[in-house]
């Protein structure tokens, strides 16, 4: 555990140090890559809450990622066009204020997670996987066939949102925001993990009947975890949309859901910094292998296979020499 703690600190320090050094050396691409890692780590921290602690293998977390992105995209595009988002029953204008957009993205993603969770958590195993996938695909096809906001082509919005006292178009400033939010999410995960809520969630994963006999309703605990998980992933989606200044149905696609699961498996399921390690490894390999071969996914698949077979605790488990699920 102590070894893992040092490893976590080293990982987070490295994620901070690389873009700072890149800023000094004038390498904005590296800062953008680190920002992408921080954002996907944040999304995976959300999924890790449901999958790692609750054993809920959601194959539909792209829904929350995409919904968070579309909240930003839609409101930002309305703000840029000076067209109100709603005219009835009250007029609601678009906005580019991140401090308004982030809570909205979190709220909408949480509401979507509540609706999806309330239905899908009545099932388990393969049925849960399929239902969450089906919901995400429904939203994907809805976005594809919604021409008002770009349909299949997606929705560009040219400028990032505004944050008081910061130039968000400056890559290092935007990285700082994403990194700070990642730290907040990790702190929340850490607190929840060892709180009674986290313990009940882990208990429900192991044996729901045993937890019920102690007076805890597994459905309620899982639903709350799923909503929190969706909300965090929604926030990551909002940041990703801002990073690219573009949102498209691809954010809602099943490939995104699969990627988030891969990040957690690579880093270590249920481990605090598993998503950070997973995202770092994934995007660095994508960058490195992509430069070597057109078929980088094939080689990446082989690496993933090795991790699943030989490092069951993921990268963190292997480095901390602790193969058990934490």
């Amino acid at each position: 555990m102590i070894r893992e703690r040092y490893l976590n600190l080293a990982l987070l320090a490295a994620l901070l140090a690389v873009p700072v050094l890149a800023q000094v050396q004038g390498a904005p691409f590296t800062i953008t890559l680190a920002t992408k890692i921080a954002i996907f780590a944040l999304a995976a921290v959300g999924l890790n809450l449901a999958l790692g602690l609750g054993g809920l293998v959601s194959f539909g977390h792209a829904a929350f990622f995409g919904v968070g992105g579309y909240v930003i995209g839609i409101l930002a595009s309305h703000a840029r066009n000076y067209e109100p988002f709603l005219t009835w029953p009250v007029e609601v204008a678009g906005t580019t204020q991140m401090l308004v957009l982030w809570p909205l993205a979190v709220l909408v993603a949480a509401l979507v997670a509540a609706a999806i969770g309330a239905l899908s958590l009545r099932t388990s195993g393969i049925f849960f996987i399929m239902i969450t996938l089906a919901f995400a695909q429904m939203l994907y096809y809805f976005a594809v066939s919604w021409p008002t906001y770009g349909g299949e082509d997606g929705l560009p919005f040219y400028l990032r949102g505004d944050f008081p006292g910061l130039n968000t178009m400056d890559p290092i400033s935007f990285f700082g925001l994403c990194y700070a939010l990642l730290l907040v999410a990790l702190w929340l995960f850490h607190r929840l993990h060892r709180a009674r809520f986290g313990l009940a969630l882990e208990g429900a994963r192991q044996n729901p009947e045993r937890v019920q006999a102690l007076g805890i309703r597994p459905f309620q605990v899982r639903l709350l975890a799923f909503i929190l998980s969706g909300a965090i992933t929604g926030l990551a989606g909002a940041l990703y949309a801002d990073l690219n200044r573009f949102v498209s149905p691809a954010m809602l696609g099943w490939q995104t859901s699969g990627e988030l699961i891969v990040l957690i498996i690579l880093g270590g399921v249920g481990r605090l910094c598993g998503p950070v390690a997973g995202a770092g490894l994934f995007f660095l390999l994508e960058h490195w292998l992509g430069g070597l071969s057109e078929f980088w996914q094939f080689w990446f698949g082989l690496i993933l296979l090795c991790v699943v077979l030989f490092a069951r605790g993921g990268l963190i488990g292997a480095l901390a020499k602790d193969q058990t699920h934490d």
């Binding site: 313990l199 208990g203 045993r210 007076g215 934490d326």
Partner: peptide, 23 residues
Amino acid sequence: LVPEGRRCFAPLTVEENLVVAAR
């Protein structure tokens, strides 16, 4: 209920097992 076959939450610590459903 103290169920048949012990059935503790194996990955949790003793303290966590005790406090998880404390009233």
